[in-house]
Amino acid sequence: MNAPSLSIGDFEVHILKDGIYRAPIGDVIHARGEEARRSALDAWGRPEFAVDVNCFALDGPHGLWLIDTGAGTAWGPAYGKAPAALRDAGFSAGEVSIVLLTHIHGDHALGLFEGDKARYPNARLLVPQGDLAYYGDRAILDATPPEKRSSFRTVAKLREVYGERVEAFEPGPVLYGLSAIDLPGHTPGHSGFLIRGDPETLLVWGDVVHLDTLQLADPAVGFNYDQDPGLAMRSRRHALESAAGENWLIAGSHITGIHRVERRGEGFAFSEESNA
């Protein structure tokens, strides 16, 4: 089955579903403390959540680009579906000329590898400078508990496998038709990508939101895998306010489909309109 797609400017954007991420609802945190957290969990009313793990293929005038790559085979059989989705969309791994990462968590970056080889052998990798600097710093690595070093290992493997093809980007224009938006907090360099067209513009916002029903209504809801929860909350509100105010379409690594954001009361919601 072909991947859902949407035309934005000079790009055909294909959503590639890599798998489903499942986690206990106990991973939820709240910026206003435990009472607000319990209220959010009561509103959710379920013991766990399951969300999409998405990547995005951009077919444009300068070649085939990917935003994120999924978990590959590193996280088990529930993941690793993105390459097949790419083939279903009519492309091969060898055609990918650029891979952009929103951040270097495993469900976004480990799909770059096929064992110890590059899954996308002809691709340049564009990685947020903030993530490369932080997770590439030996002193920070040495001060980090072993169980929290996976992103450091990912950066090391990126450099080992892709070598000089690993490049850093800063917020602002990155490639033709595409700009990076600084949305830190989930990781130091966590970024979204703005794809401008006429009349539509699409923001691919990475991990700004995991549970739309909770976090749009209350952006203070976060997760314990946000490295800086307060900063992640501010980035989430900034992305939601920008998307609502500018009438952008949005897509997310853990959001099903493509949506618009509207203000609703003290929070936000997806509008009834859905494009994919």
Rank of each mutant, 00 (worst) to 15 (best):
S5W: 07
G9S: 06
I195F: 08
S150G: 09
P199Q: 09
R22K: 13
L110I: 05
E164F: 09
H108E: 15
L58D: 05
L64C: 06
D116E: 15
V208P: 00
I29M: 14
D198I: 12
Y120L: 13
I25W: 07
L132V: 11
A180G: 11
L16V: 10
R87M: 08
N247V: 13
S179Y: 07
Q129D: 14
N54Y: 01
L110Y: 03
A269L: 00
W44Q: 10
E12M: 15
R46Y: 06
L211Q: 04
D42H: 11
D182L: 02
V221D: 03
F11M: 14
R236H: 07
V96C: 03
L249K: 06
L216R: 06
S92C: 13
G206V: 02
H186L: 10
D212T: 14
A239T: 03
L66K: 06
H103A: 12
K148G: 09
D68G: 10
L112F: 02
Q215S: 05
A139V: 13
E35L: 14
G19I: 11
D116V: 14
G9P: 03
S7R: 15
I29C: 13
A109S: 14
L86G: 08
A43Y: 05
L211R: 04
E114M: 11
D182T: 04
E241S: 14
I29A: 09
L211A: 00
G265H: 02
V166Y: 00
F169C: 01
R22P: 03
R263Y: 04
Q227F: 12
V174L: 14
L64G: 01
L110F: 04
S5A: 14
G163R: 13
S179P: 05
D226M: 05
R32W: 08
A43F: 09
E95M: 09
L202F: 01
H238A: 15
I8K: 02
L86D: 04
L86Y: 00
P173K: 13
D42E: 15
D68V: 06
Y176P: 10
A217Q: 02
F270E: 05
V204G: 01
V127M: 10
L183V: 05
L6E: 04
W248M: 02
H238K: 14
G26K: 15
G63A: 04
G90A: 03
P61V: 12
S39F: 06
F268R: 02
I258F: 00
G111K: 05
T213W: 07
A84M: 11
E12N: 15
D182F: 08
G9W: 04
H30C: 08
S179M: 11
V174C: 08
D68A: 09
L158N: 07
H62K: 07
G33K: 15
C55Y: 00
G257F: 08
